[in-house]
Amino acid sequence: MTISDGETDPALGTNRRYSDSIDRDLAKAHLTRVAAAGQLETLTTAELQLDAVARTVDPVPKPVRAWVRFGGEPTLVYAEACMWTPRAVAIRFKIGEREYRCWVWASAVEALSE
């Protein structure tokens, strides 16, 4: 399991003195490798059905944690929810300097306190 922005799989060992810094660096490096190895997947037009369901556009995107896939590799990222329907959420997030945008199922998104 990959987690961006400083969280790692609890199965990994840590260095007590520098654990936060090391964990954050490892997570960023892994996320960069995953993003480079595959294309970001997004929901299809048929799955979204944007012409048949109401959607909400938020002028102030909300912080979330969401599962995305790069070339089939599931990865947990910190993102912003920009738009949503009852079943799907449009998110944006950065890896390094590059911004990514995609639609994911609502069940793959967890709201974070601001």
Rank of each mutant, 00 (worst) to 15 (best):
G6Y: 01
G6D: 01
E7V: 10
E7L: 10
E7N: 06
T8V: 12
D9A: 10
P10E: 06
P10Y: 00
A11E: 06
A11C: 10
A11S: 14
L12C: 12
G13Q: 06
G13Y: 00
G13E: 04
G13N: 07
T14P: 11
T14E: 13
T14Q: 15
N15I: 07
N15Y: 04
R16L: 13
R16T: 08
R16Y: 06
R17Q: 11
R17P: 03
Y18N: 12
Y18S: 12
S19A: 11
S19M: 06
S19C: 12
D20R: 15
S21M: 12
I22Y: 08
I22T: 11
D23N: 14
D23G: 10
D23F: 03
D23V: 02
D23H: 02
D25T: 03
D25A: 13
D25C: 03
D25Q: 09
L26H: 09
K28T: 07
L31H: 03
T32V: 10
T32K: 14
R33N: 13
R33V: 05
R33Q: 14
A36W: 01
A36C: 07
A37G: 15
A37R: 09
G38S: 09
G38Y: 06
Q39R: 15
Q39C: 08
E41P: 11
E41T: 02
E41A: 08
T42W: 08
L43T: 00
T44M: 12
T44D: 10
T45Y: 04
T45R: 11
E47F: 01
E47L: 06
E47T: 03
Q49H: 05
L50Y: 01
D51A: 11
A52K: 15
A52F: 12
A52S: 15
V53F: 13
V53K: 14
V53L: 14
R55E: 10
R55T: 05
R55M: 10
T56R: 15
T56H: 14
V57Q: 15
V57E: 15
P59Q: 09
P59D: 14
V60T: 13
V60E: 14
V60H: 13
P61A: 09
P61R: 04
K62S: 09
V64A: 02
V64M: 04
V64G: 07
V64C: 10
R65E: 09
A66Q: 02
A66V: 01
F70K: 07
F70M: 11
G71N: 00
G71K: 00
G72V: 01
G72F: 02
G72M: 03
G72A: 07
E73M: 10
P74Q: 07
L76N: 15
V77W: 03
V77C: 08
A79G: 07
A79K: 02
A79N: 04
E80Y: 07
E80T: 07
A81C: 07
A81K: 05
A81N: 06
C82M: 08
C82S: 08
C82W: 03
M83F: 00
M83A: 13
W84N: 15
W84C: 14
T85V: 04
A88W: 00
A88T: 01
V89R: 02
R92Y: 03
K94D: 04
K94H: 05
K94Q: 09
I95N: 14
G96Q: 01
E97K: 06
E97I: 04
E97P: 10
E99G: 07
E99I: 05
C102N: 06
C102D: 08
C102R: 04
C102V: 04
